[in-house]
């Protein structure tokens, strides 16, 4: 069953065509990555799907509701985490969560907020103004705000841009656990490793069209067959960073104990 169904989506800004017929589908409970360089139109797709922008042509079905006539029902089904953390800086973290819970008309807004503060490791800073938060904390709060009301579909627009590796891993883990619980996730990214790590299917958006769409394995088949080469693997700076920080013992130990690993190229 497809939760997201996009056909022939077109959008121009004035004379400039941004989307020139975009088609894709996303199955329920899967993570779908829209991969593309800056300006490829990823954010435009997300904005159209979250009813912030009207398409020039094409049809979109979200969770069984038609974007054109059932905007309110679409908004009931989705939640958007935009490219920049959309949080209220003057309110505290807790107040931000309560605000969204009230606007989603939930019964127990305070309880929902407390649960999410725990889940996103924000309890200690819950009653500080968000203006004093770090970038990673803001992003965590931002994503926590998007989960309120358990929407069946979540849009994440470049969720880890500007985050340090530690916070990025945290975001990845929460996205994975969302999909495990049955949430459908559409995320955009310009980081290839992010798509590789998270996504069940990957689509490449280029010059307003989807030029490739499939699982990682399928996309790899598009290239000439792999050759096996032996190379020495140096720890990446990221692994060094995480080792020194000391919170990611497992992955660092694996990288450190075995200096030669097989890599396909």
């Amino acid at each position: 069953m497809q939760t997201l169904h996009v056909r022939g989506l077109e959008k121009s800004y004035g004379q400039l065509p941004v989307l020139r017929g975009v088609d894709f589908e996303v199955e329920r409970g899967t993570i779908f990555a829209l991969l593309g360089s800056n300006g490829a139109g990823k954010t435009t797709v997300i904005k159209i799907l979250s009813t912030l922008l009207k398409p020039d042509a094409g049809s979109v079905c979200v969770n069984g509701f038609d974007l054109a006539g059932q905007g309110k029902l679409v908004r009931e089904s989705i939640s958007l985490t935009g490219q920049f953390a959309a949080v209220d800086e003057i309110l505290t973290g807790r107040e931000n969560l309560v605000l969204v819970a009230r606007l989603r008309h939930l019964e127990n807004a305070r309880g929902v907020a407390t649960d999410l503060l725990e889940r996103f490791l924000l309890v200690k800073d819950a009653d500080r103004r968000v203006g004093t938060y770090s970038g990673g904390m803001r992003r965590r709060l931002d994503i926590a705000m998007s989960l309120i009301g358990d929407p069946p579909v979540i849009f994440l627009d470049e969720p880890t841009t500007g985050l340090d590796p530690h916070s990025r891993t945290e975001v990845w883990n929460s996205v994975k656990s969302l999909a495990r619980e049955g949430t459908t996730v559409l995320l955009t990214t310009q980081y290839l490793d992010e798509a590789e790590h998270l996504a069940d299917r990957i689509a490449i958006l280029h010059e307003g069209r989807i030029i490739a769409n499939g699982t990682l394995a399928e996309l790899k088949l598009l290239l000439p067959p792999a050759q096996v080469e032996y190379i020495q693997k140096q720890p990446t700076l990221e692994e060094v960073f995480l080792a020194i920080i000391g919170n990611h013992g497992d992955s660092v130990a694996a990288a450190g104990s075995d200096p030669t690993t097989v890599r396909q190229s």
Partner: peptide, 11 residues
């Protein structure tokens, strides 16, 4: 700040 878009994307 994006707060406006967040509100617009909510029911």
């Amino acid at each position: 700040s994006g707060m406006f878009e967040r509100l617009q994307s909510m029911p």
